[in-house]
Design a protein around this nucleic acid. Structure first.
Length: 175
DNA sequence: CGTGTTTGACCAGCGC
DNA sequence: GCGCTGGTCAAACACG
């Protein structure tokens, strides 16, 4: 995992951690710093970089794809290696942000605090990146997207729209 | 026909 | 130990 065309959030801890979308114990995660919040939009999507949360503690490297898809009940093949999580809020009419990757929906379940979070998984072979999309209960115009894992492959299609956002995000977040 | 979505069931973790 | 809750599976279905 060296350099991918779309490294969503450079792990240089320059961006702000914020209250996690669902249920992270946010107290001991990182020092909150809501100082600089940037907003930029492309089309009808507005990205708030102020609402990015990092939840990457111990990233024990790639999980060796050892015998996937066995049956129900096999949650984590490895021990308790937490994958890095990146969550951010976007103000958008659509839930699905076209980030250039191909996602397959694999679950949707009503939970307490959040209405109906959708669970997506990257369809690329060997890529186990997941993302969870949910709307804010307060402001349903805000979509909270939580990425889990890092893409092990280049982006699939040229999304000028989102790439533009990403590039700006990297610019802003690297200050 | 290939790909993605829907949806109910199942399972594990956690709190009480 | 039990029940609740969140997360995942997988078959059926829809669509281009």
């Amino acid at each position: 995992m060296e350099s991918y065309p779309a490294v969503f959030f450079p792990s240089s801890s320059s961006t702000q951690a914020v209250v996690p979308p669902s249920s992270f114990s946010s107290s001991n995660s990182m020092s909150l710093n809501m100082a600089n919040s940037h907003e930029f939009q492309a089309g009808n999507i507005v990205v708030n970089t102020s609402n990015i949360v990092f939840e990457s503690k111990s990233f024990g490297g790639e999980e060796s794809t050892s015998g996937d898809q066995v049956k129900v009940g096999k949650k984590k093949s490895e021990k308790k290696i937490k994958k890095p999580k990146y969550a951010f809020q976007t103000r958008s009419q659509v839930d699905i942000l076209d980030d250039g990757y191909r996602w397959r929906k694999y679950g949707q379940k009503a939970v307490k605090n959040n209405k109906f979070p959708s669970y997506y998984r990257c369809t690329h072979q060997g890529c186990h990146v997941k993302k969870q999309v949910q709307r804010l209960t307060k402001d349903e115009g805000v979509v909270v997207t939580t990425y889990e894992g890092i893409h092990s492959h280049p982006i699939e299609k040229s999304t000028d729209n989102f790439e533009h956002i990403l590039s700006q995000m990297q610019i802003y977040s690297s200050v």
